[in-house]
Computed example of a mutant assay.
Amino acid sequence: MLEHGGNLRDAALAFERPLDDWLDLSTGINPHWYPVPPSSASANAWHRLPEADPALALAACRYYGAPAMLPVAGTQAAIQALPRLRAPSRVVVAAPSYAEHAHHWGQHGHSLRQVAYADLAQAIDSCDVLVICNPNNPTGERIAHDVLLDWADRLAARGGWLVVDEAFGDTEDAASLGAHSARPGLVVLRSVGKFFGLAGLRLGFVAAQPPLLSALADLLGPWTVSGPAQQVALAALSDTAWQAAMRARLRQESAWLRQLLAAHGIASAGTALFQWWPEPRAEQFWRHMAQHGIWVRLFRHAAHGIRLGLPPDEPAWLRLQQALTAWNKENT
């Protein structure tokens, strides 16, 4: 199993610090999650088998601007299943990116290459499937929609796919590619966990042509999304006032985080939910922050650097500032 952020129990064991004495900045999950009321799920949602509620898919289509969407148990479920829906293919996964994509496309008989973002345009004509995160996780890099649509058309002309993971797309100014997902071969993944801060729901959506969605649904089987998750997500996706206010808040806090890092000599990039930078002393920085009870995401391989999520409150901001100041003092 691949390593991911949010693994606080590992941090507590490795650094012998109690679990509740950590500031977890290792994910890009919104620390100001959607306010789920205690009675948000009806008794039937807990009692009955979770039939798919058509209202949820319709709410997702409105929110993401897609003509057809399939709810799944987190985009991870789709990431694991999509490679099983194709015969052995030539697959290119943009690198660096969310590691689960390459991990699963590397199985099931596919021929896998990982290609740097700068070189993707040269790889289009020599692959059958291109998988890309947009904006990218962990670097925040983006590729323009008109470029992606051109690539999708070129792949589709020979029966190929363009899979675009937009898990961090909710705060982007550009509209989702989901609006174009009626095109052949275009598959768009969206996550409820990141922007809404509801990672524990395990809910995401896939936008694509209906036959592909039907094949994916058949592969995943029945009851993939729990009843309570469906009811909570329906409320969150429909709450346009909360969404607008949260986008503004996250953009402001993201600017604060960039400014704080810059004040300590760190030039970062990212999204409204995280910052990332290539760090020559990445392991030293990660260990330093852990010794201050702050868990950040260390990338050791393709993206050798650090990713930081947003602090949840004022004491957390102060704790991060103090740890950064100590890092500078120890390394200048």
Rank of each mutant, 00 (worst) to 15 (best):
T171N: 07
D10V: 12
A199W: 05
E100K: 03
G185Y: 00
L250G: 13
M69H: 05
A229S: 15
L324Q: 02
Q322C: 12
A121M: 12
G200F: 01
R62L: 14
D218W: 09
W105D: 00
S39K: 14
A245R: 13
S89A: 15
H101N: 01
R202Q: 15
C133D: 11
L237A: 07
A144M: 13
I29L: 07
A174R: 14
Q230A: 13
G204Q: 06
A303I: 00
S26R: 07
A248W: 13
G305S: 04
F285H: 00
V232T: 08
L318P: 00
R62K: 11
G109L: 15
A241C: 08
N7A: 15
A262Y: 09
L324K: 09
R249L: 14
L82S: 07
G193S: 01
L320G: 01
L49M: 08
P35H: 03
G309D: 02
A123D: 03
W276Q: 01
R319T: 02
D128Q: 11
Y117D: 08
V192D: 01
V115W: 13
A14I: 15
A59K: 00
R281L: 10
G5R: 12
H145M: 11
G160N: 02
D125W: 05
L310S: 00
G5Y: 06
H47I: 13
A102C: 13
L112M: 05
L177I: 03
E141A: 10
H304L: 06
A316M: 11
G293S: 09
A229L: 04
P138R: 12
V296A: 09
A144V: 10
G65R: 02
L112K: 04
Q275N: 11
S176P: 04
P311Q: 06
N134G: 01
T224M: 13
D313G: 07
G309Y: 02
A57M: 08
D239F: 05
L261F: 12
L112W: 01
L237G: 09
A94N: 04
W242Q: 04
L120S: 11
A263G: 10
R154D: 10
A282M: 05
A245S: 10
S126A: 15
G197R: 00
R84Q: 14
A57L: 12
A12S: 04
R90S: 01
P312G: 03
P312Q: 11
V188N: 03
R90I: 05
R84N: 05
P35L: 01
T240W: 14
W46E: 02
W327L: 05
R9T: 15
W286P: 00
V131Y: 03
A68W: 03
L257N: 01
D125L: 07
P210I: 05
R307V: 02
Q80C: 05
